[in-house]
Design a protein around this nucleic acid. Structure first.
Lengths: 349, 349
DNA sequence: GTTAGCACTCGATGGAAGTGAGTGCTAACA
DNA sequence: TGTTAGCACTCACTTCCATCGAGTGCTAAC
C-alpha cells in the first residue's frame, strides 16, 4: 500500500494532535479540528489502512488511534515543521550560558537545569571523555605528616586533585623530585595510554632513590587517572515527569525514576550514542526499559575536540520540534563558548 | 489524666504494631497479638483516654488507632528498646567505610549509599562547613594564554582548584609573585574572615606592581572562597519511597520528591540542625511540607573539629530504633576514620 | 471513491448493596 | 470501682450493575 499525500496528512494531524492532547485521536475530532476536506468515515478508512501499515495503533476497539514509534519516526524525519526559537528564549539561553562560564562543570550543570526548565522534561548532560586528553604536569604538595595533595593538570586545562593519605614519611624535596620525575615521564601522553601501556611499570623501575614514596603515590595516581576517564552525569528536572499524563501512574513513574537513577547504565547509553543531533524513539533505544521513552541528545565541543552531550528524556509523545531546536541552540552556544583561541600553550617546570 | 504503666504499654504496642504494619491498630488485634492481660473492651477505654490526651488519632470513626507525633516522641524517648546492630551489618559498614577512604567526598557519598540500602529509606549526607577552616596557601598555575589554575589549600588538607579565564596577559613570574603575596596575606585566616573582613580590599591596595593581574584574579578568588563555604549535599535511595505504603499515592510521592529536590532549602535545614543524634518527628520539623516526615541525623567529625552530617528522611512511621543505631554506628565509624593523628603540619613556601 | 447511517464495543463514571474491622455505650460482673 | 461481654452503629472498601459516550467497522447509497 502506498503512503499517499492524504495518508501523510492524516499521520501528521494525528501525531500533532496526540503530542498536544495525550488522548487517542478519533476520526470525528480529526475532521473537525483539521481541514482535511474529507469526512470522518473516509478518515476511518484511511486510519484502518495506516493501522495495517503499522503507523497507528488502537488501545482498544472503541478508542481513537495512537501513533506508533514508526509514525513518530516518519513525523520527525519528514513531516514536522522546523521550529524557530523565539528571540526571548534565545536571549535567556545566551545569558545563562555566558553568566556561568567560569568553570566548565558548572556551566554544563546550569545548562542542563535550564534545558529542563525550557522543555519541562528531564534533562541530562555528560562531560567529555578524557581519553585523548594529554597530561601536562603533575604536582605533589605537602599538607601534613600523612597527607599530600596530588594534582594533575591536563593539556586542555582540566585540573584534578586529590588529598592522599600516604603511609610513608617524606620531605618536601622528595615530593618535588618525584613530581618532576612523574611529569617528565608522563607529559604528552594521553590518559588512556598511561593506563594501558606499561609506562607506569617503567617509571617505577627507573627511579630508585625514593621508590618507597613512589610506591605509595602510584596506586593513587592510577586511581585518579581512572577517575579522570569517567564522565560526569548531571540530571535535572526529575520531578517534571509527574506533570506528564503518561506517568500519572505510580508504577510507571517509579520505573522511570529507577531507570534514570541507575546512573552507570544511563551514562553508558549516552556515551555510546552517535554525535550530532540524535533522536531515538521508543524501541529504537534498544532497551526494554526505555521502550516508552524518547531521547534527544546533541553534542557540544570543547576547543573543537572533546565531546560532551546534552539532552532530554521523556515519553515518546514529545514536542520533537521544539525540544530539538532548544537542544541544538544550546549545544551550539556551548561549543562556541568553550572555543578558546588556539594560543600557544605556556610551558613550565 | 495520668500516663499509667498500662497506658504506656498500650502506646508501646500500638506504635510498634503500626510501625510494622502501616495499618491502624484495633483493640482486638492488640489484645490478640500482645499479651496485655486485658480485654479488647478495656483497651478501647484506654485508647479513648489516650486519644483525649493526644497520643492517638482516628482516621475515621470505625478505624483503628494511629499514633500521633506525640506518641512517636514518647516512644523514641522512653519506650523503644535499644537495638543492637547484628555483627554482619557492622562488618558491612566497617568494610565499606574502610575501602573508600582515599578521598573524603567519595567516602561520604558511599556512606550515604550504604545507609539507604541498609534502611530502605532516602538517605543524605552533607560535608562540613568550612567557616573555621584556615587558608594554608594559594597557588596560581599557568595553563594557556587565557587560562590559569587557581588552587587553594586549607589547613585541614582540603584543596580546591578552578581553571580561570583571565582577560589579561601574564608571565609565569607575575603569577608566582601574586600567589606568594596572596598566600602571605591570607594564610592563617579563616575563609569566613577573608570574605567578611576587608582583607581583600587591603590586599588590593597593597600590591601595586601587578594590580591588573590581581584585579582579574580576585573576583574569582572570592567566588571560589564562597563556594568553599557551601556544603555539598548527597542524596541516595530516592526511589525507595515508592516502596513505602504512605507514598503509594502519586501526589504524596511527588511532593516528597519535590521537597528533597529543593537542595538549597534542604541543605539549610540540615546545616541548622543540632549536632549529636537528632530525631525530629512530623511537626517538629518546623515546616509544613515536612510534617509527615521524620528525620534522623547524626554528625561525623573530621579531625575532631569540622562537622558534617549523615541521616535519613522517611515517613513518621519509621523504625526509629534500628535506623538510629545504624546511623550512630556509621557516623562513629566515619569520625574515627577521619581522625588523623595530630602531627605537626608541614610548612612550605 | 466518498459518505451517511447504524449497530456494536468498551472504558469510564457513579450509585447501590454487601462486608468487615472497628468503635462507643450500657449493663452486668468480680 | 475497675473490667468485661454484648450489641448497635459507623464507615471505608469492594463488587456489581446500569448508564454514557467517544469511537469503530460495516453496509448501502450517492
Amino acid at each position: 500500500m502506498d503512503l499517499t499525500e492524504r495518508k501523510l496528512k492524516i499521520i501528521h494531524a494525528i501525531v500533532a494532535d496526540f503530542i498536544h492532547s495525550a488522548e487517542p485521536v478519533g476520526s470525528r475530532t480529526l475532521s473537525k479540528k483539521y481541514d482535511l476536506g474529507i469526512s470522518p468515515a473516509t478518515i476511518r478508512n484511511e486510519m484502518s489502512d495506516l493501522e495495517e501499515m503499522g503507523y497507528l495503533t488502537h488501545p482498544h476497539t472503541s478508542a481513537g488511534r495512537v501513533p506508533s514509534d514508526k509514525a513518530y519516526r516518519l513525523y520527525v524525519n519528514h513531516l514536522m515543521e522546523r521550529y524557530e526559537l523565539p528571540e526571548e528564549e534565545k536571549r535567556i539561553i545566551n545569558e545563562n550560558i555566558q553568566s556561568n562560564l567560569t568553570e566548565l562543570e558548572h556551566t554544563i550543570e546550569h545548562a542542563a537545569e535550564l534545558l529542563s526548565e525550557l522543555t519541562n522534561l528531564t534533562s541530562f548532560a555528560i562531560t567529555p571523555r578524557q581519553d585523548a586528553n594529554k597530561l601536562k604536569y603533575i604536582n605533589l604538595l605537602p599538607v601534613d605528616d600523612q597527607t599530600v595533595v596530588l594534582m594533575i593538570v591536563a593539556e586542555d586545562g582540566k585540573v584534578i586533585n586529590k588529598a592522599l593519605r600516604i603511609g610513608v614519611p617524606y620531605t618536601r624535596e622528595n615530593l618535588e623530585l618525584l613530581a618532576k620525575a612523574m611529569t617528565q615521564t608522563y607529559r604528552g601522553h594521553t590518559i588512556s595510554d598511561v593506563l594501558t601501556l606499561d609506562i607506569i611499570k617503567y617509571f617505577e623501575n627507573d627511579i630508585e632513590v625514593m621508590s618507597r614514596l613512589a610506591k605509595s603515590v602510584m596506586p593513587n595516581f592510577i586511581k585518579t587517572l581512572e577517575s579522570m576517564l569517567n564522565v560526569d552525569l548531571y540530571m535535572e528536572g526529575l520531578t517534571n515527569i509527574f506533570s506528564i499524563p503518561e506517568y500519572n501512574d505510580i508504577d510507571r513513574a517509579r520505573m522511570f525514576l529507577e531507570m534514570v537513577n541507575r546512573k552507570k547504565d544511563f551514562t553508558d547509553v549516552l556515551v555510546n550514542r552517535d554525535n550530532g543531533v540524535i533522536i531515538t524513539i521508543g524501541d529504537e533505544n534498544g532497551s526494554e526499559i526505555m521502550r516508552d521513552c524518547s531521547l534527544i541528545t546533541a553534542d557540544y565541543r570543547i576547543n573543537g575536540r572533546l565531546v560532551g552531550k546534552l539532552g532530554v528524556i521523556g515519553p515518546t509523545r514529545m514536542k520533537y520540534g521544539e525540544v530539538t531546536s532548544v537542544i541544538k541552540y544550546m549545544t551550539d552556544n556551548l561549543s562556541s563558548a568553550f572555543q578558546i583561541t588556539e594560543g600557544e600553550l605556556k610551558d613550565d617546570e
